[in-house]
Each structure stands twice: as structure tokens, then as C-alpha cells.
Simulated assay, not measured.
Amino acid sequence: ISMAWAGSLASIRLVIQGKHLELTEALKAYVEDKVGKAVHNHAYLVMEVDVRLSVRGGESGRGQKLQKCEVVTMFTKKHGVVRAEEATDSMYSAIDRVSDVVARKLRKIKEKDGHGRRLPSHVGEILSRESSTAPPTPAVEEPDFPDEIVRTKIFDMPPLKINDAMDHMANIGHDFYAFRNAESGEVNILYKRKEGGYGIIIPRE
């Protein structure tokens, strides 16, 4: 369901999706209110907000019945994407929690916006130490996954500095992030190391 906010949020597209549950008017109004308050102070940056509500487990499935809310906030190319996800036994509680997480992440972006962050020294050390090697692969038993491509994602990849790529990776909550290095023009992979700090994979010339 595609909706539109009023007032200062009128320029932002709101998309609400439901899986294994009925999107009632009360639920849609609650999402519009709570998530709207979370992004209100950052309307000048946000292009789209995608809210995905789902139910899993319980009588028709395995384990505890959980109500999950996931919010993906699409920003300008400079600021990337913010993602938050929460699952509880109440959908309204999940919406409350995920809205709080989104609001905190947006505040951090606002604080950093316009204030350049120095590249941590350990990233520079990793760049020189691991320039010719791949990240260590732990010896673990491989799960039985299908040996075929089951999903394809297409997205813009504007040039980024390494410290900006680190911010983007933190915003989406992933352990790795592919980006185009603004200095070299090449696609690099930034990742979190189990030993602490970050690593980066750079293609050999």
C-alpha cells in the first residue's frame, strides 16, 4: 500500500506491506503516526520509507508467535539507507521499538552531517596489511544452501569515501558493504572483522 503523509512529510513516499496479517486501518494509522514522528526532523533528506509488517510462528508455524516490523528508509545518494527491524509478541510494540531505533540512527546522521569524521587508524593499518590477502575464513561446516541464485538486487553505487561507507554499513546493520571507492573508482568490499575493527577487500590490478 502506497500512502502519503501530510504537512512537512508530504514529499516522502510511504509504503506499507503486510505478510500473513491484515493491514487494518488502525494499524496503518499507527504506522503513519509513529514512523512519521521518527523521520519528521529529517524530511529534507528522506525520499521514501518502506514499512514491512509480518507474523511468523504460533499455531500455524513453529515456535513462539512473533510480530515483526521492519523499516527501510531511503535517503539521498549521499546518506544511503537506514534499516531497522524488531520482533515482539505485539505488532504495536514492534512498531514502537523500530521507530525508536530509526529515530536514534537519524539523530546520529544529523550529528555527523557536515562534520567530517576522521578515518580510524586501524582501518588504514588493515588497508596496508590486507591489501593482497582475502579475509580469513573460519573452518566451519557449510550449511546446505541451494547452489543457485535465488535473489538479485540492483542499486545505485555512487562514489564514497571509506569513512562514509562505514557509516552506510552501520545504518543498514550489515557486516559487509559493497561500495565504489571515490579515490580509485573501483568497487571495494568493507567488512567487520571478528577480531574487531574493519577490513576492506580491494581488487588487484
Results as ranks from 00 to 15, higher is better:
Glu148Ala: 05
Glu125Ile: 02
Glu142Phe: 08
Glu22Trp: 05
Ala182Arg: 04
Val123Gln: 02
Leu66Gln: 14
Gly57Pro: 05
Glu141Leu: 10
Ala170Trp: 03
Lys77Gln: 13
Gly57Ser: 01
Cys69Glu: 00
Arg204Val: 07
Gly7Ile: 01
Glu195Ala: 15
Val102Cys: 00
Asp100Ala: 15
Ser54Lys: 11
Glu130Asp: 15
Arg62Gly: 12
Ala103Glu: 12
Val123Cys: 00
Leu21Gly: 07
Glu48Gln: 06
Ser60Ile: 09
Trp5Arg: 08
Ser8Asp: 14
Gly173Tyr: 09
Phe179Lys: 08
His115Ser: 11
Ser8Pro: 12
Val31Thr: 06
Asn188Glu: 10
Ile172Glu: 11
Glu142Ser: 14
Leu23Asn: 06
Leu127Thr: 05
Tyr177Thr: 01
Ala43Cys: 06
Asp147Cys: 05
His42Val: 09
Ala6Tyr: 06
Glu142His: 09
Ser131Glu: 13
Val35Pro: 06
Gly173Thr: 05
Ala43Gly: 12
Arg97Ser: 14
Glu142Ala: 15
Glu111Gln: 14
Glu111Tyr: 12
Asp33Cys: 05
Val51Ser: 01
Leu45Tyr: 07
Gly61Glu: 01
Leu21His: 08
Glu183Lys: 03
Leu106Gly: 07
Ala87Cys: 01
Gly80Val: 03
Lys110Asn: 03
Ser131Ala: 13
Asn181Lys: 01
Lys112Gly: 08
Val101Ser: 10
Leu119Lys: 06
Ala29Ile: 04
Ser90Pro: 07
Phe75Ser: 04
Arg13Pro: 01
Ile189Val: 15
Phe176Val: 07
Glu22Ile: 08
Ile154Lys: 13
Leu119Glu: 10
Glu125Ala: 09
Ala29His: 09
Asp164Tyr: 00
Ala84Leu: 00
Ser54Gln: 00
Glu22Leu: 02
Val31Arg: 04
Met166Trp: 00
Ile154Leu: 15
Leu127Lys: 13
Met47Pro: 06
Ile201His: 04
Ala178Gln: 10
Met169Glu: 02
Lys77His: 14
His122Ala: 04
Thr73Lys: 03
Gly185Cys: 08
Leu45Asn: 08
Gly80Asp: 05
Pro158Tyr: 07
Ala6Thr: 14
Tyr198His: 09
Glu130Gly: 06
Val187Phe: 12
Val98Gln: 09
Leu119Cys: 07
Ile126Phe: 13
Thr152Ser: 11
Leu160Ala: 07
His168Thr: 01
Val81Asn: 13
Ile201Tyr: 03
Ser121Glu: 15
Ile12Gly: 02
Asp50Tyr: 06
Met169Ser: 09
Asp144Leu: 14
Thr133Phe: 07
Lys194Met: 04
Ile200Cys: 03
